[in-house]
Amino acid sequence: MIVFEHVSLEYLPGRFALQDVSFTLNAGSFTFLTGHSGAGKSSLLRLVARLERPTSGDIQVGNIHYNQLRPRQEPALRQQMGIVFQDNQLLPDRSVFDNVAFPLIIGGYRYNDIKTRVSAALNRVGLADKALENPQVLSGGEQQRIGIARAVVARPKLLLADEPTGNLDPDISAEIMQLFMQFNASGVTVLFATHDQSLLDTFRYPRLQLHQGKLTGAPQEDSPAPAARGRQKSDHAR
């Protein structure tokens, strides 16, 4: 599903956010992306979402080779993914419903389709009764769940989550984690960036570990997933 080959990203010359990163994630897998603050987690996700271009190296997602992608095709590519942003990126002047509906408007969905999908997604994250609220008056955890509902509302095959449990109580974190596991169980490939150690300890999925822009240790052997499903075999090459 996602293949990185010797991918490097320099925001400024000589300062690598990512350096020579290579790995492969299978379709249907659930993978943690970990590392200290500044290790390059968000940068890696932005590369997958084509919000950033690598300085060197090849990226392939599905059967799309990014170096053959024309800029005009990038928006359509992004519509195929669900992305939960580290800072949520909600629209403050719009209801919860309209926030979640936004990707569907962009995708040109029909009105009735939008109504069904948005209410299903809100139901899924437990916010059906907050549909009319303004996101700004909701709690941090609720806001994060709006972001999640928005990411899954178009039923993407790939879900990228950038610290969706950042700054949340452990039990809310676990709840959100459950949500992602449900999506994964329905066949969605999940790449989940977090530096929440308790989450990593509780849910022993394979990890991509970043340290100052480089992948360290491909730990899929030493962390056999106990919450295991058979098909979830990510293999990390380095």
Partner: peptide
């Protein structure tokens, strides 16, 4: 039902 409630929030 709350799903319906959510659908009613559509503009």
């Amino acid at each position: 039902m709350s799903t319906e409630q959510a659908a009613n929030a559509a503009g």
